[in-house]
Design a binder for these strands. Structure first.
Lengths: 340, 340
DNA sequence: CCTGGCACTCGACTCTAGCGAGTGCCAGTC
DNA sequence: GACTGGCACTCGCTAGAGTCGAGTGCCAGG
């Protein structure tokens, strides 16, 4: 049952050809375009075995073979040779990311770059708040009963949120509050703040207390739980590339999935410390994306991981290049963030 | 050459039927489904005239008629009767927008709501900075040579930007700077700030001056010129509705256009004080959107206009409903913002 | 000015036939 | 035992012919 080397070579050749031509590949073509050193008949026998094992299949009885999700999986795991980026690509990455001003700017440029290089849909998660720490908290009075809370994280992310106070509050108290929260929270990692916020509330008494209670609710609610993550998307037009041949003709479910932040987060945000993650077709947990493959990884300065990024494309994508590109972009972004 | 009333009625019927069925409409169908009080033959004669005048056309020699862009234009201008929102829709709007916490939240909910109600692609511009005024400016030291500038506008928008100083600056100077810019700029409309910023620089001397110069550059550059506008988008999946019959089969150019912020701004942002704006097919300045229609309007509290919103859909859209919905949503959002 | 009638057009659909890429299998060879 | 050449077979794709019918334009008559 073991697949010998030649069978693996055949599978690899099939994947490579199919990705390149987008057409089912037959035995004759295969021996012509690759140095397999055997006759078409032999290749046919190998293909029969590969099909039986579920790595390839025939769209119609009398057509060439096409890789299955399982076939791609084997290819990615064992058969693909790393494809180094072209110098042009390296240059593109540098050129694109140099000159970014802002975190927003970095994220936007990154997502566009990724979409352009891979010619697929790119997704970039903003540095996760849970993994950042507080650099500064600002309270700006909007009216006597409203404050704007602005939090600046060390990654450069800025989050704001309106606070409705239970009653009017004098300006001096606002200053006190600001002082207080900054003292206690600056420098702490956001994941660690909840108990600290609680402690803060307990510490405060007198007139400030009601305001502090409300403020703490908002702090916990907004900055730690809800909305916590943001995501940027680009390159949806690339879905129309294969002329609707990929994705069994309907972009609908894919576009729908890509509009759900929650879905995207699940896709890109769940980063294990390890490395590259490739989900092929059926391996995707999200039903709407069963016709696609997702290549994602984490990024951050050094080994720290601040967020995820990746691309979504047809299962018949050029995995080696895509993986190489995603990895390279993630590294660059990580380095860029390290400079701040 | 004048189109008498019946010819107009015929055109209206054609538009309504075509929008409903998505199929070329013939003379027989027409007299059956509308009380025109004449025979098919007469309608045919009318249609011949309408075609000659460019309001309708035949896809094939032996098929029904389809409205042209010009036909839709006439329909929108003179023939469509306002279609009031259903109670269900009114309720949906209220339910959707009540409970919004923040400006971000309002914008996101609005764009989703609009996409859902019109079943088209919705676009919402954040309240334009140029039309807002400064509520507060905050300077947060990031390192000795870097500041984070945070501006809060009266509309609730918050913009941040990194400032690279020419040299290190002591914390006290930062406080002075903050004091200074707030004193001079708070309350002014953003469109009016450039001369004030210039005046500020002239006023400052001594050690603070170099920092102030840099700061002013950033202020002008970021807050007034670049990046100034933000936009939210939703409902791209709705493009796949007509099963690719609309848009002559290619979503490509449309998706591409929708990814360009500049394009969207041009689409939605150029709001005249007047009211609803409808651009049909060829009337669009953006080539990629020549196959679509855009319905947009401004929104804001009372008569002030803070930004634009609208939808992008096939030329064969239900104009009366779409217009009614866009208008209603704009009003609600305006009212909502008035409460802040 | 409207209407009923009629000949005509032409896209959509169906059916058939032929082509050819690709296969599976088998018998023969190294 | 593994590989190869040969061969019959499958079946999707394309082209061409035929039919159907919705819809038209035109014309003569009310």
């Amino acid at each position: 049952m073991g697949l010998d080397d030649r069978k693996l070579a055949v599978l690899r050749a099939i994947v490579e050809d199919y990705v390149a031509t987008q057409e089912p590949v037959g035995s004759k073509m295969l021996v012509e375009r690759h140095q397999l050193g055997v006759s078409p008949a032999t290749v046919r026998n190998d293909m029969a075995v590969l099909e039986e094992e579920g790595y390839i299949r025939q769209p119609h009885t009398s057509a060439g073979r096409v890789p299955t999700d399982r076939g791609y999986r084997l290819f990615v795991d064992r058969l693909s040779r790393v494809k180094p980026l072209t110098p042009a690509e390296r240059r593109a990455i540098e050129r694109f990311l140099v000159g970014a001003i802002d975190l927003d700017d970095v994220v936007h440029r990154t997502v566009r770059l990724l979409a352009q290089l891979t010619r697929q849909v790119a997704v970039v998660q903003y540095p996760s708040l849970a993994r950042s720490s507080v650099r500064h908290l600002e309270l700006v009075p909007i009216s006597t009963t409203r404050l704007m809370l602005v939090m600046i994280a060390d990654t450069g992310r800025v989050e704001q949120r309106l606070v409705e106070l239970p009653g009017p509050i004098p300006p001096d108290d606002v200053i006190d509050l600001r002082q207080l929260v900054n003292e206690k929270l600056v420098g702490t990692r956001l994941a660690d703040t909840p108990p600290l916020v609680q402690a803060l509330v307990d510490e405060v008494s007198g007139e400030l207390r009601p305001a502090m209670v409300t403020l703490s609710t908002v702090l916990l609610e907004t900055l730690v739980e809800r909305h916590e993550e943001r995501i940027a998307l680009a390159g949806t037009a690339n879905l129309t590339r294969g002329g609707l041949l990929d994705f069994q003709g309907s972009l609908r479910p894919i576009l729908e999935a890509l509009e759900e932040e929650v879905v995207l987060l699940k896709l890109i945000g769940e980063v294990e410390p390890s490395a590259m993650r490739v989900r092929i077709g059926d391996e995707n947990e999200i039903d709407n994306l069963r016709a696609t493959s997702v290549v994602s990884t984490g990024y951050g300065p050094g080994v720290t991981i601040l967020g995820g990024l990746g691309v979504v494309g047809p299962t018949r994508m050029d995995y080696p290049s895509t993986i190489a590109t995603v990895r390279a972009v993630a590294r660059y972004v990580g380095d860029l963030l390290a400079q701040n």
